[in-house]
Design a protein around this nucleic acid. Structure first.
Lengths: 241, 241
DNA sequence: ACCAATTTGTCCGTATGTATG
DNA sequence: TCATACATACGGACAAATTGG
């Protein structure tokens, strides 16, 4: 009888190495901080050569599951949320997401974040937000500085919310917002309105008014889209960057 | 005078290779689909050996910037949003995110997604949602099947929303929700209530009622948290998985 | 503060299976 | 069909740098 041909998946050895290590990590046998054996050791254990082990390590290195605390030591680590976010940013860009898609996501995430920030902001972060707002008021005239402060404001709100799941989502969009702002602001010169809303958001956070923080952030997002369109860009086309 | 020691970063050659290629991709000189030279070629151009080139390629391979359409051809590709999402899932898990963090993010994302789904769902997706709901009504008795259908329902809503930025965020949470549901449902047996709300959401999407879809999804999320706590889990602790 | 052993980074040459033209 | 080209994998080697005594 003719058997169905065993389509045995040809998994490269270097991937077997990384899969094996990844499993050890996921199952908790290797916890973050644990030091891995040296390359020759692992080559012996897996029955492959060092070159193969090294290729496997590169895969884990890029996914952030391992890193080198010192040049000669390889340890298990937890993937930095920031690096995941920047990978997400790049992916969204390469998929030609439209401004509308970005904006709809912002509309979901940013007001919620602001609300949580009003609930949880630490005194330090409230202070940092206040600094940011007052610096922004003095930064008129320099686009770059203004935009930088704008991004910083929203990042601070994100931090203040104390939610890493939302933060990850936010950070994935943050750079895209920055680029879009940089493209539209010079054509608008609506510094005053942005400063006003930032002030309103900050003030709501400071007095722990969740609804108001949320509401003002919502307004801020609506303004953002209006500005983008007034600046002459098309929201339903891929981001102008 | 003793200068601050030039901390000249010793960047490994394999990283230079991947950085160089990554730049070519980011600047658009190499667009998705473009075929890269073979390993020996690149080794010559970069002035390194093949082993080094291969290590560099592994880095790009893991980040999804290159892949092999056929075993011998290496091409530029756009990172799959799904793989980014699963990396995000893993990262959130390893950072011990709490149920509350997950839930707050869901509360921001899921209702917004449902609203957009009501606006944009294609007939095909409406049909798939209807199938899902009716299959779920018949699936009582099998936890696994029920949970699978639950996840599928939300994924379908995510697809129907037609927003890749939100989809990426959603997919990052989806597996975590699935595991949490799997942990709590056996202790609750509230199948009926879930089916009712899914039905309400589906019906709102079908008749293009954005507000109602959003509102029902919100209720669904509130139920989710209540269930988690009633099942005896602590929302402010890392996910039970 | 020095020295020795270890380990990484990198190179070279070779073998093998297989996809492509 | 067949030959070539190419990726995968092996083995051995060496310098440089770090670690640990």
């Amino acid at each position: 009888m003719d058997l169905p041909v065993e389509r045995l998946e040809q998994v490269p050895a270097y991937r077997k190495v990384s899969d094996a290590l990844e499993n050890l990590i996921r199952t908790g046998e290797l916890k973050p901080g644990a030091v891995l054996p040296n390359e020759t050791d692992m080559a012996d254990r897996f029955g492959v050569t060092r070159a193969t082990v090294r290729e496997g390590i590169r895969l884990l290195e890029q996914s952030g599951l391992v890193d080198r605390p010192s040049p000669k030591r390889l340890a298990v680590s937890r993937p930095a949320l920031g690096s995941i976010a920047s990978q997400a940013t790049r992916a969204l860009l390469m998929h030609d997401v439209t401004f509308s898609e970005l904006w709809e996501a912002l509309l979901a995430v940013e007001p919620a974040t602001a609300g949580l920030a009003a609930r949880r902001a630490t005194p330090e972060l409230v202070q940092q937000l206040e600094d940011n707002v007052s610096r922004m008021a003095r930064s008129i005239g320099s686009f770059d500085e203004f935009i930088q402060l704008d991004v910083e404001f929203h990042d601070l709100v994100g931090k203040a919310a104390g939610n890493r799941a939302l933060l990850l989502a936010r950070d994935s969009f943050s750079v895209l917002v920055e680029r879009s702002s940089a493209a539209m602001l010079p054509k608008l010169m609506t510094f005053g309105r942005i400063i006003d809303i930032h002030t309103a958001i900050f003030s709501a956070i400071k007095r722990r008014d969740e609804n108001e923080a949320q509401h003002q952030m919502h307004r801020h997002m609506v303004d953002f889209k209006r500005g983008y369109e007034i600046a002459g860009f098309h929201a339903d086309q891929p981001l102008v960057i």
